[in-house]
Amino acid sequence: MTSEAAFPIVLSLRVGLAALTIVVPLGLALACLQARTRYRLRRAVDALILLPLVLPPSVVGYFLIVVLGRRGLVGALLDRALGVRLVFTPAAAVLASAVVALPLFVKTAQPALEAVPGELEAVARTLGLSPISVLVRVTLPAAWRGIVAAGVLGFARAIGEFGATLMFAGNLPGRTNTMPLEIFTAYQTGDDARAALYVGVLTGLSFCVVLVAGRLGPRVLAS
């Protein structure tokens, strides 16, 4: 395989991993908030978290441009203050992937956190653990299977992202052409062999992800 052919594979994997560095901490915070607290706007926040999962990816891409584009609400500030321009960069592909992977992560991790018996956390508090320590030493270890499954599914969704990435990061060869974008380009130009290569890689990866996520499914805590 030439380095030019390998580039979309390597880029997709790097984008997926980089997206996870955003999705995991943010997703865990949101999943914990939704699983453990009851507040007035909880349903609205739930709907907001889910939104990228049901919105057309082109709409998600549009929102990203409106917020983080060069003339966007936050993008203009970043440009002026730090000279950072995100549109049509690999970082834009990471952000687009993170936004679409986040709801999948939260919705997989949240039930795992909800399944941790409240008594375990209560006992930990009486043993002298602060709420943060309870989260780190009890809740997360007890829910690790669901959290890892959420991360695996989020990674798969991130490397498979197409529409929002196309809108926000573009399809620049050697720069932002991830595997899904490359499949589209190859198909459009009649290069079936090239399309089949990336289809094969993505299908294989997705199959492994489904297997791993299935093995890590939530288990009833028996203690």
Partner: peptide
Amino acid sequence: AHERRIGYVPQHQSLFP
């Protein structure tokens, strides 16, 4: 609770699995 030093043994599901 974490500063009370009160030991608690619940009826069920209290050991860290």
